[in-house]
Measured scan of single mutants.
Amino acid sequence: MAAGGDHGSPDSYRSPLASRYASPEMCFVFSDRYKFRTWRQLWLWLAEAEQTLGLPITDEQIQEMKSNLENIDFKMAAEEEKRLRHDVMAHVHTFGHCCPKAAGIIHLGATSCYVGDNTDLIILRNALDLLLPKLARVISRLADFAKERASLPTLGFTHFQPAQLTTVGKRCCLWIQDLCMDLQNLKRVRDDLRFRGVKGTTGTQASFLQLFEGDDHKVEQLDKMVTEKAGFKRAFIITGQTYTRKVDIEVLSVLASLGASVHKICTDIRLLANLKEMEEPFEKQQIGSSAMPYKRNPMRSERCCSLARHLMTLVMDPLQTASVQWFERTLDDSANRRICLAEAFLTADTILNTLQNISEGLVVYPKVIERRIRQELPFMATENIIMAMVKAGGSRQDCHEKIRVLSQQAASVVKQEGGDNDLIERIQVDAYFSPIHSQLDHLLDPSSFTGRASQQVQRFLEEEVYPLLKPYESVMKVKAELCL
């Protein structure tokens, strides 16, 4: 049975990233139509530049190519590739079939990587351009969430054990800070992308030097003109047959890092959902379990974690691919890159769409948070109580021993009897502590235990987050809708 299948058929496997999760716009960027249309555009740009620099290419040939950029006979191309065992030459023939007058000058002087690699770089750039505003929107939604809850005390956790208090907004800023680093890295790697350009079979530009009869300047002009037509500021000066596969490492490393950030955020949300302090959106008709109707599973956060793990592992592909590119190139890269580049971007696209949807509907339960604080705060307040007693004339050592005994009794009630923490009640009825009984409410005010959390939130948002989001103001209103 021949390899390949009808990918629109229910009898043929289709990647869930495309069929179930990723956005239509990201799927289109990695589609065959987008790819092969870009090949034709690159052939047109090459012909236009070659004509401008004096090669015998007519206006009629150029116009014929322009008129057929979208006229792609995919069936013919597939048949040609089956016959020739070469995808680029299959599309040269297919393009030439609908451009008979231009057929002889299509791909003039070029090698397969002229269309293959340059198209990949265009796709990487455009895919990054799709991700950047999506990530900015996630940051914006979380920034709104953090600002609104900047002063809401909550129990902090280290080692997932109760620690000092923080605020809900401050905790959210930990998430935002990681995503801001990801946004900066995505922008950097996007701006650092260079075009492969017009380089020939081993990167020496020998074929173009021959076409222009040894004119170095025209060869350099050709490279520059096509690079500018493709919208790049610069091209690699040095290439082998391909652009260095280190570029793929750079791009997928940034995406993998984004995956790590999203995994951490969504894990926190899942843990908070278990504590009943916070939940992701839950639709009115949504079913959490087929057997347990009360369940409210954090399905979206779980999906993000599941896909983020996949995204983090994909960076190993370009690392290994770059390491086995012998001399000017081997074909070890080809099949692998067809999979890992598309999957990385479709996965990143999915987790950003999902995280935006989550961040637009996060639900906080202040009463649950308050109750958990009441359970733990008495123990945390013991040092403040000791200091207040010393100020009232008591002995630190005597007070410490009193607190120690009462704390152990209260802990026994919590752990052995399943009761509430009654340390404060014990202190309130103990005559030894009568000098500070009137101060206990103040000493137990949760806001006095959150330090500068709310001020940190305000400063972080104003100095770091809002300036970073400013270039994306025009796209901030787009909502994230999930079908599944």
Rank of each mutant, 00 (worst) to 15 (best):
A3R: 13
G8P: 15
S15L: 15
P16I: 15
Y21A: 00
A22Y: 10
S23I: 07
E25G: 13
M26S: 03
V29L: 11
F30M: 14
F30W: 13
S31M: 03
S31F: 01
D32N: 15
Y34T: 03
K35V: 08
F36M: 08
W39D: 00
R40P: 03
A49R: 01
E50S: 10
P56H: 13
T58C: 11
T58W: 10
T58H: 14
D59C: 14
Q61T: 09
Q61G: 12
Q61H: 12
Q63R: 11
Q63I: 11
E64F: 07
S67I: 13
L69P: 07
N71E: 13
D73Q: 09
M76D: 13
A77N: 13
A78H: 09
A78I: 09
K82M: 12
L84Q: 15
T94I: 11
C98L: 13
C99V: 13
C99S: 08
L108V: 10
Y114T: 06
L124T: 15
L124I: 10
L128G: 07
L131Q: 13
K134A: 11
K134C: 12
L135W: 04
I139M: 10
R141E: 14
E148H: 10
E148I: 11
R149Q: 12
T154I: 10
L155Q: 03
A163S: 13
A163N: 03
Q164C: 09
L165G: 00
T166P: 07
G169P: 02
D178G: 05
Q184S: 14
N185G: 13
K187M: 10
V189W: 07
L193S: 07
L193Y: 07
G200H: 01
G200K: 00
T201W: 02
Q205Y: 00
S207L: 02
F208D: 04
L209T: 13
L209P: 01
F212M: 13
F212L: 12
F212V: 10
D215S: 15
V219L: 14
V219M: 14
E220S: 11
K224C: 11
M225W: 06
M225C: 10
K229Q: 07
F232R: 01
F232L: 13
F232Q: 01
K233T: 10
R234D: 10
R234F: 08
G240R: 00
T242H: 05
T244R: 01
R245T: 01
K246W: 04
K246H: 07
K246A: 02
K246M: 03
D248F: 01
V251K: 00
V251C: 10
S253I: 12
L255Q: 08
G259F: 00
G259A: 14
A260K: 03
A260Y: 03
S261V: 05
K264E: 01
C266E: 06
D268T: 09
I269M: 07
R270L: 00
R270H: 01
L271K: 03
L272A: 11
N274I: 04
K276E: 06
M278A: 07
M278E: 02
E280L: 00
F282T: 08
K284E: 09
Q285P: 11
Q286L: 01
I287V: 06
G288S: 07
S289H: 01
S290H: 01
A291D: 02
P293S: 07
Y294D: 02
K295A: 02
S301G: 13
E302N: 00
C304I: 14
C305R: 02
S306F: 01
L307E: 03
A308F: 03
H310M: 08
L311P: 01
M312V: 08
T313S: 13
L314C: 13
L314Y: 15
V315M: 14
M316Y: 05
D317Q: 09
D317A: 09
P318T: 08
P318Y: 00
S323N: 05
W326P: 00
F327G: 11
F327L: 10
F327I: 07
E328C: 06
L331N: 06
R337Y: 03
R337V: 03
I339A: 09
L341W: 11
T347C: 14
A348W: 02
Q356E: 11
K367P: 07
K367M: 07
E370W: 08
R371I: 01
R372V: 03
R374I: 02
R374W: 07
L377D: 03
F379R: 04
A381M: 10
A381L: 11
A381P: 02
I385E: 03
I385A: 04
I386Q: 06
I386S: 06
M387G: 15
V390Q: 11
K391Y: 11
K391P: 04
G394V: 08
E401M: 09
K402L: 09
L406R: 07
Q408V: 09
A410K: 08
A411N: 08
K415A: 10
G418W: 04
G418Q: 03
N421T: 07
N421S: 12
L423I: 08
I424N: 08
E425N: 13
I427C: 08
I427K: 04
A431S: 13
S434I: 11
I436V: 09
I436R: 04
H437F: 06
Q439K: 11
L440A: 07
D441H: 12
L444Q: 05
P446A: 07
S454H: 08
Q455C: 09
V465L: 07
Y466D: 14
P471C: 15
S474Y: 14
K477E: 14
V478E: 15
K479V: 11
E481F: 08
